[in-house]
Amino acid sequence: MSEIQLTLKIWRQKGPDAPGRFQTYASGPISTDMSFLEMLDVLNERLTREGEEPVAFDHDCREGICGMCGAVVNGHPHGPEKETTLCQLHMRHFNDGDTLVIEPFRARAYRLEKDLVVDRSGLDKMISAGGFVSVNTGGAPDANAIGIPPKNAEEAMDAAACIGCGACVAACPNASAMLFVAAKVSHLSLLPQGHPERARRALDMVSRMDELGFGNCSNERECEAACPKGISIRHIARLNREFLKAAIFSEEE
């Protein structure tokens, strides 16, 4: 274990409509075993003692699974490490004397609430448009009634691993939510249980995505590079396929 000192430039903004600006802080000694959020905790403890408001940031599980944390560190959503959420990013990946610019995820569809906290409810709204199988509790057949090739189950699991952190939107030059939507459409279209609704689902989720003001995908692949769960743009291709099939050939409106 060793210690480093950093300069932190953090976006501070009181509320959605207040003006925001960067504020610079000296980190003080930071153990390289700390996680990024623990580093912010340490800063916040100090700010609190000094009577200043701590930096607001979202987090919950701190295990890289709930998808609640996230900020842009030196231009990288969730920081520079691959396939790592901000809460799982450890300070040993930074060097003594580094300056870290920490900003919130930015997109028109993400309202900034305070400091690094943004409203990502658009992601939920897209799921509610069709990211489910319409099955009521109680009516399910035996779980083994339909076999699923393990390869499909694995591929579905790859897509279903999305934690809904919204970093893909933050990373996309167009603030597109394609990777997120693709992950869900792909997950369900790979399983027989998702088939009856696959056309409807693709159409509805994409149209909700468009309504919410996310951008269009131009295949920039930044989303995939930033995704902490390594969701591949292969799933975006599958979404495109599902959508075009539905739009051109299906009976659905």
Binding site: G138, D142, G147, P150, E154
Partner: peptide, 21 residues
């Protein structure tokens, strides 16, 4: 019933080669 329900919802449980849970 829980397992049945979850599979029907599309929970991608691990599978054997033959496609069974």
């Amino acid at each position: 019933n829980i397992i049945d329900q979850c599979v029907a919802q599309g929970v991608p449980f691990a599978r054997e080669y033959g496609g069974q849970l």
